[in-house]
């Protein structure tokens, strides 16, 4: 009985909004021809436009992937995160309120998913990573120069999370402190402080 009711509601819903759908399709075709900006795409997508959503994803897919890769340093993990972010966007796009830049908002979502993944994988991977660390530590120390780069990455990824985020956003993503502050939801001065703290921790490598 209950089920029947729900289905009924749903069907009615489609009828009620049938008009709305077709309208939207028309709008969509016009707008997509001359490269709509993110804000427009989001608005369209939030009104139910598949094409707009698809275009938005296409446009930012590489950015998402690249952020994920920088934080994780591992391709298939980065691709998992990208997938998760795409799925998430489908659900949460409507909560984007336009106060921040879409890209800033996207950074936050990606970073959150990265965190989630790190945590859920942390346990099972810990041993794996520990073993990796050991074997690497054992390798001969000849090409010191060549390893500085990867050492730096290792060290940066091992920083406390906020410092790591700040450093990667400022140096890895080359954002200015204002944008970073927005993404991290802290004051600009706090960003500078995180970076400074990180430098202190990394000073052996700098």
């Amino acid at each position: 009985m209950m089920i029947g009711l729900v289905v009924n509601y749903a069907n009615r819903g489609n009828e009620n909004f049938g008009n709305f759908w077709t309208q939207n399709m028309v709008l969509e075709k016009q707008d997509l021809s001359d490269k709509p900006d993110d804000g427009e795409l989001i608005e369209l997508a939030n009104n139910g436009s598949r094409a707009a959503f698809a275009m938005l994803l296409e446009r930012h897919y590489m950015l998402i992937y690249k952020i994920a890769y920088q934080w994780l340093g591992h391709q298939s993990d980065a691709e998992d995160v990208t997938q998760e972010v795409c799925l998430k966007l489908a659900k949460v796009l409507k909560s984007f309120d336009g106060r921040a830049k879409f890209s800033s908002w996207l950074y936050r979502i990606v970073l959150n998913v990265v965190r989630d993944m790190q945590r859920s994988r942390g346990r099972q991977n810990k041993r794996h990573i520990a073993l990796k660390d050991i074997t690497q530590a054992n390798s001969p120390a000849s090409q010191e120069e060549a390893t500085t780069y990867s050492q730096m990455w290792q060290a940066v990824r091992k920083l406390p999370q906020k410092q790591c985020d700040a450093v990667l956003l400022v140096y890895g993503q080359e954002l200015n402190h204002f944008e970073v502050a927005q993404i991290m939801d802290v004051k600009e001065s706090t960003v500078s402080w995180y970076v400074m703290e990180a430098k202190k921790s990394l000073k052996g490598l700098l």
Partner: peptide, 27 residues
Amino acid sequence: LDILKNAEAPEPSKARRAQNLEAAMLA
């Protein structure tokens, strides 16, 4: 620290990309 910006991410897999996008569209 500037060397961090030269991070070259390997090209993401095309198949994976299609899969991911499709999954997102379904969602």
